[in-house]
C-alpha cells in the first residue's frame, strides 16, 4: 500500500536491510569479502557487470580489485583529487618505464611527471594500456545497443557519468587503462587477444597522491565474444603508506626514482 505518505514510507522502509549481488558495503569493514589480513577498510563494493564506481581516496590508500569470475574488466582513470587537471597519461605510463605491458611495480603516471598510483600487486598479468574503453559507437556496432541505461552500456558512457559526479566534463576523460583482460602486440603491431587469466585474480594499486578514481566494469573492446559478457568486480581499499625511500620500488629504476621524488616533492610542498 503506497496510497498515503505514511504507507509509502512504510513500504519504502520495508525495502531496507536487504542485499544484492552488486552493492557497496557500509561500513566498509563489514564487507563479506574483506581481504585476508586487512582489518579496517575505507571502501568496499561489488561493482555490477556493466556498472561503474568512483571514489576520492587519501594518499597512501591501497586499492584492491578482485575478479572472482574471470569476466570482470576494470577500466580505470585516476586523477590528482586536489587538482583534477592532473590525470592519468597513458602515453607517459608506458613510455617512461620503457614497458607497454602493465604489471606489478608499474607506475600510473600523470602528465605532470608524477606517480598517481603504483601497481603494487598483480596475480593476473592480463591488462591493457592500448585500447582504452568502449564508446557508444563501438557498442552499437558490436552489440546493437549502447544506451547508457540499456543492457550493454559503453565504458565511456559510464565514465561520463562518474566524472560528472565530481564536477568533471567529458573533456576531462583521458584514455584509460584496463585490468583483467589482456592483449599483446605482435611484430606487425596487430593486437592479439589474451583475455582473462581466469577466475580469482587480483590487482592492487597504491595511491601516491590524493586520488579520484573512476572505474567502469565493462567488456574490453576487443573481447571476441559476441555477447556482452561481464562479471562482477570487487573493490576494497584501506589505509596504508605511499611509496617512500624504504620501499624497493622507490629506486628500482632511475625513471621511477625521479617520478617518486617529484611526487613526494609535490606532497611535501602541499603539506600532505
Amino acid at each position: 500500500m503506497t496510497d498515503s505518505v505514511l504507507n509509502a514510507r512504510a513500504d519504502a522502509r520495508a525495502r531496507g536491510g536487504q542485499t544484492s549481488e552488486w552493492m557497496p558495503y557500509l561500513p566498509a569493514s563489514s564487507s563479506p569479502y574483506r581481504p585476508l589480513g586487512v582489518e579496517a577498510l575505507t571502501w568496499a563494493e561489488t561493482v555490477a557487470p556493466g556498472g561503474y564506481t568512483h571514489k576520492v581516496l587519501a594518499r597512501g590508500t591501497r586499492i584492491r580489485f578482485d575478479d572472482p569470475t574471470g569476466d570482470a574488466c576494470a577500466h580505470v582513470i585516476v586523477y590528482n583529487a586536489l587538482e583534477t587537471v592532473e590525470r592519468l597519461n597513458v602515453a607517459d605510463t608506458v613510455k617512461i618505464p620503457w614497458q607497454a605491458y602493465l604489471g606489478a611495480g608499474h607506475p600510473l603516471l600523470s602528465g605532470d611527471g608524477r606517480v598517481l598510483a603504483t601497481i603494487v600487486e598483480d596475480t593476473s598479468g592480463h591488462h591493457d594500456a592500448f585500447c582504452g574503453t568502449t564508446t557508444e559507437a563501438w557498442n552499437q556496432r558490436k552489440y546493437g545497443d549502447a544506451r547508457p541505461e540499456g543492457p550493454s552500456p559503453a565504458g565511456r558512457s559510464l565514465f561520463v557519468k562518474a566524472a560528472a559526479k565530481h564536477g568533471l566534463a567529458p573533456r576531462d576523460l583521458p584514455p584509460s587503462v584496463s585490468f583483467f583482460q589482456g592483449i599483446r602486440v605482435d611484430a606487425d603491431g596487430a593486437f592479439e587477444w589474451r583475455g582473462s587469466a581466469g577466475e580469482g585474480t587480483s590487482v592492487e594499486l597504491l595511491a601516491e597522491l590524493p586520488l579520484l578514481i573512476l572505474v567502469a566494469n565493462v567488456p574490453h573492446p576487443l573481447d571476441p565474444r559476441p555477447d556482452y559478457v561481464a562479471g562482477p568486480l570487487r573493490v576494497h581499499a584501506w589505509r596504508s603508506a605511499p611509496t617512500g625511500p624504504d620501499d624497493d620500488r622507490f629506486q628500482a629504476t632511475p625513471e621511477a626514482h625521479r617520478a617518486y621524488l617529484n611526487t613526494i616533492d609535490y606532497a611535501e610542498a602541499r603539506g600532505l
Binding site: F130, C131, G132, T133, T135, W138, G189, A190, F191
Partner: peptide
C-alpha cells in the same frame, strides 16, 4: 565541437593494430 577530439585508443582498437 572540440570536446570531440583525437583518441589513441579508439584509433588503435578500431583497426586492431598499434601502428
Amino acid at each position: 565541437d572540440t570536446e570531440e577530439r583525437y583518441s589513441v585508443p579508439d584509433t588503435l582498437a578500431w583497426q586492431g593494430n598499434a601502428y
